[in-house]
Design a protein around this nucleic acid. Sequence first.
DNA 1: CTGAAAGCGCTAACAC
DNA 2: GTGTTAGCGCTTTCAG
Lengths: 345, 345
Amino acid sequence: MAKSVTILDVAARAGVSKSAASLALRGTGYVSEAKRRAVLEAAAELGYRPNAAARAMGSARSGTVGLILDDLRNPWFVPAVEGLSDGLHAAGLSPLLGDWRLEGAALAERFLELRVEGLVLVGTLDGAESALPALGGLPAVQVGSPLAQVPGAAVVTNDDAEGARRVVRHLAALGHRRIAHLSAPGTPVGEARQAGFEDEARRAGIEASTVPGGLTEEAGRRAALEALRKDPRPTALFAVNDMAAFGALSAAEELGLGVPGDVSLAGYDDTPAARLRAVGLTSVDNASREAGRVAADLLAQRIAGARGSGTGGTDDGGAEPTAVVLLSPELKARSSTAPPTGVVR
Amino acid sequence: MAKSVTILDVAARAGVSKSAASLALRGTGYVSEAKRRAVLEAAAELGYRPNAAARAMGSARSGTVGLILDDLRNPWFVPAVEGLSDGLHAAGLSPLLGDWRLEGAALAERFLELRVEGLVLVGTLDGAESALPALGGLPAVQVGSPLAQVPGAAVVTNDDAEGARRVVRHLAALGHRRIAHLSAPGTPVGEARQAGFEDEARRAGIEASTVPGGLTEEAGRRAALEALRKDPRPTALFAVNDMAAFGALSAAEELGLGVPGDVSLAGYDDTPAARLRAVGLTSVDNASREAGRVAADLLAQRIAGARGSGTGGTDDGGAEPTAVVLLSPELKARSSTAPPTGVVR
DNA sequence: CTGAAAGCGCTAACAC
DNA sequence: GTGTTAGCGCTTTCAG
């Protein structure tokens, strides 16, 4: 490599001192207008590009934040990342992305070595418990309902119980009186959605049943097969998430049942695939873009706080309580839900 | 921050010199077994975590590679990233991910400041041309068919023309004689697939037509509407990619046509959504995982090469030609393609 | 084989 | 207001 250009080169070319160049480049402190211009010009001519590592060393701040994504294949995180990206940039922080499924604990390790100033945990992060202690009091925020709770980290997510209630209300309004929920016990999202489902079903006097499944397509398919074979058959299915709903779609097909003709179907997350016109799955928009934005702001704030007080680390004295922000989900009614056949009215 | 533990602390605790600790930690050079053990132990006890910035400074190597992803929403890149991740780790390099659509040229800038040792451009990267010159001779590899070609970068992609030919052969074998292609002119993938389509159609004596569309669902829908309104109507549609195929699915539905009853449909990319049983879209697996793996190896090799020769930079003297690796795509026949109705035989 | 010393490129307290 | 001077934490010659 042809010896990359450093700030020293820039300073020399501009005829100023190293630190003057540093200040001019960064717009901090006072530098005469003439010098500033000269420096900027020299930098441009030389194609100067600051060395992030050196900057991080000098300032003891990396200016980066690690985003740990649950699984790149599960697209629900995309809007969340968009919101996060926006919010972080606004706070002068740069996001570094990584896939938890792909790299696992090594990812957290790497981020830590990179000295990220904060961490955002997006999604379920299966098996993250073991890696959490290593976080060492770094400011952290969780987006979505994580499997494990990082002590002291704020959690930003949508109100899963409320979203589930809305689905039930929607189905009830269509005239459904016998609804089965394909659940995902053992997961925070699953529990919350099931609770909302049962709560609203009871209130609405719906004949509700819950069939345990999981968050995957296959789990949804199996649960749906079981639910649809019951007698009397439910007239509507509410799957814990869109993936499971897609599985249910297959199950219905296997059983020769039409959707929404023979059975209505709703999911959760408002995945891109749900939006495909050809699919048209009624789902719940979990407000993840906004969640990302809120999480970014929260994190930026915590990072700023951590920088301020020289303390931090071990004893946070409960100063920053584990905030939980619940955003309002929104029902997206599409073609997979319709009044049950033979509705009297 | 409670003054994080440095290698000096580790060395002190282990009773060795700083450099001995460095060697022991990294397993380079010769350190007596006793000392090595002492160092490792001290590091573990202290919870020592090397500072990546400092390491990068000292060694003039960051050990990272930037992966620029076209668009997180378009899931075709996932297997490619998996392959890349594998290959890079094997070469002792760590991937840093970023979304081009979200951050644009600033992403490349950031990676450059982070002193990544190489760059992988994944996918179309619309508008990347402008940012390319700034790459400054950094080893780079492109995965998929990029809109713009980075001078000197290897391109690893699947053989789009061949994949298209396979689709035609598949449809022809089913008995289709009148096939319309929903194309995406102006994009490298689009051009290649169209060429393959027309080539094989001619060879097979198929009555082929091409309707210009694009790579999005909406573009596919519009093109399909146009194609399906023709008289005589094609018995099969081949969309340039899965997204467009989903649009075509909607179009068929709008026109009251069944798939594959009234018209067969095939896409390209073998997207997760195509695999959903409820969808069952015949598609082409573009071997992107393997592409990622190959790209990683190629890049690692180039990086190693760049490190070896002190030259590089401006004059590569054509030493490393712009390699293009074409991988074999594979047809995935599913339920969206079937023999045309009223096939005589 | 192991310890001491010289930077890597930048920032941030310093005096000038 | 502007230039000078220490480091930041690590690697890596280079003697010992």
